[in-house]
């Protein structure tokens, strides 16, 4: 079995209105999402804002309880738990296996704690003795390429990129099986972003890190991920190995997303017209394929029948009625 298998995950939020706050509808933030992450693999979860990426990651971290579906996770070889349904009590010892890297390196570190204590905190919570903690903190600082002297300083003394390294060290303290990173480089400047991307690539190699990398920047994703899962309005549009997805997308939404990214090359200027329209409201998703109002390839069937995610070739999944017949443009 894979390290993580998410099957038909749903998370619906009630919409309340009126004096009595009665439920008048539901936001289908995540509406039947399936994917897996193999050990040692980085899967990127991409899509426009509001498509449900953060909600998926919060369900995996159990910061939110799934409405339905399964999140099968293998904390150690031969043992599988369902993070969607496992009782709170049994969840606690599992938390060390799934750690999080946050987007905002300014908000995610306690300004009143020394860096060494911030990194050691998960160790302390898990009962690691003080001497071992100190050794581990030094090891972690080295791993994220910060000087040992950082231990006794406070977060305000560090730049955004250095703070992100501290956050990464903290996330790795307990050797988690899975790291969930929600937009870990999107708040950083180009030069700092490049350093953190390289660090993540190093860690993937050195630690065989398994990672769910939530991002909206398709360029960053091409550098760091082994496979990519593209979401649209709470559902999975396409899942594929990274290079294959960029070269030859199998879902019209993936094609539209790729075409919209401005390449840092004036010679490629203005090649394609951007996709029209706006992302649908997850409280009122269009019938049939949610992408059909914006899809240049939509046919009658797309307006009435919802396409399921199907394996369109070995290792590649797409939820488009026309996935087999269309030949879509990638970026090469």
């Amino acid at each position: 079995m894979n390290l993580l298998e998410v099957a038909d995950l749903k998370k619906h939020f009630p919409i309340r209105a009126g004096l009595l706050r009665r439920e008048v509808g539901q936001v289908r933030a995540v509406d039947g999402v399936s994917f897996h992450i193999a050990a040692g693999e980085t899967l990127a979860l991409v899509g426009e804002s509001g498509c449900g990426k953060t909600t998926v990651s919060r369900c995996i971290l159990r910061a939110q309880r799934a409405t339905s579906g399964a999140i099968r996770f293998m904390p150690e070889d031969g043992r599988v738990v369902d993070l969607a349904t496992i009782p709170k009590r049994e969840l606690r010892p599992l938390r060390r296996h799934v750690q999080m890297i946050f987007q905002d390196p300014y908000a995610s570190l306690n300004p009143r704690m020394m860096v060494g204590d911030i990194i050691a905190e998960p160790l302390k919570v898990n009962g690691v003795p003080a001497a071992e903690r100190r050794a581990r903190v030094l090891e972690l600082l080295e791993l994220v390429q910060l000087p040992a002297s950082a231990r006794t300083r406070f977060p305000h003394a560090f730049s955004g990129g250095q703070r992100q390294r501290i956050g990464i060290a903290r996330a790795l303290a307990l050797n988690p099986r899975l790291v969930v990173a929600d937009e870990p480089v999107s708040a950083l400047d180009v030069s700092v972003q490049a350093q953190i991307i390289n660090l993540l690539l190093d860690l993937q190699d050195r630690l065989r890190l398994s990672m769910l990398f939530v991002a909206h920047d398709l360029s960053v994703v091409r550098h760091v991920s082994d496979r990519v899962a593209v979401m649209y309005v709470g559902r999975m549009a396409e899942v594929a190995p990274t290079d294959a997805l960029y070269r030859s997308p199998r879902h019209p939404y993936t094609e539209a997303l790729l075409a919209a990214v401005p390449a840092p090359d004036p010679g490629r200027r203005g090649r394609r017209a951007p996709v029209a329209g706006e992302v649908a409201d997850p409280a009122r998703p269009p019938p049939g394929c949610a992408f059909h109002p914006r899809c240049p390839y939509a046919v009658d069937r797309c307006r009435v029948e919802r396409p399921e995610l199907r394996e369109v070739e070995p290792g590649r999944w797409a939820s488009c009625h026309r996935a087999q017949e269309l030949s879509l443009a990638g970026v090469t």
Partner: peptide, 12 residues
């Protein structure tokens, strides 16, 4: 230093 949509897999 700019990440590129044309990158090769795991390109530093």
């Amino acid at each position: 230093a700019v990440p590129s949509i044309l990158a090769t897999p795991r390109q530093r």
